[in-house]
Amino acid sequence: MKEFVKLDKYGQLYIDRVLFESYFPVIFTCVNDKKDIFIGVCCQNNEKGCKWLLGKTNGISIVRMLRDEITIRQLLLECSSGKISVDYVQNRYIVAYDNSDWDEKSPYLPKEDSYMYAEDGEFEEEINYFSSMEYYVHYNGECYKPIAEAMGTINKGIEPMADALAVFASAIGNISISSEVVSTLRVFGELCTNFAANTGKYSNEEQYKLVFNSTFSVSPKDLGMELGSEDDNYINAA
């Protein structure tokens, strides 16, 4: 990949994908040695020099821009960080962070309605590329090396022992946290007392002779309802 600019905060940037170009890349992405993704927009290229606005972002946000879900302006302001401004004047790069180039009314920022306005399939390859760049989050606990563990019991009326917890530096130990049971259904139970059946002692299934056991398989079509343009639609839905 072609080297672009070296930033003190993020290291050497390399131009990765050019999304829009004229005689020079206008909208492009960069990566650094850590595979962080940056969006770059060339906002000036004339006799005064070149200026780029760069933001550290991610593959998902770039895909959203390519799908016209967000504008280029939104990608820079809302879906990226760093607010990097790079000027190329007199054969040298000048880097600044969060300067006036990033002010809301800055003439260097893309306009409010700056969508990519892509045609169908125009960025399909880039969308697949940036979608695959997102790192995979493992669910399997075996992939995670244990680094901390804490356990505690919660008993009503027992206050936290602050002094004992002061030495809980490695996040391993016992804690006690008071709790309270809230009877949110008590009123309901009292109102329905007269109607409740006294079924006696709760027992497990083993004490009941099995008289019926079946599973049901129902097609979703059978459960659904098609509502036509009739006056009694609401009655049917109920």
């Binding site: 493992h138 563990e149 804490a150 919660i154 996040a171």
Partner: peptide, 12 residues
């Protein structure tokens, strides 16, 4: 009613 709370932290 008794509760136990366990916190496990891992790093991949």
């Amino acid at each position: 009613l008794k509760f136990g709370l366990q916190v496990q932290i891992g790093l991949d």
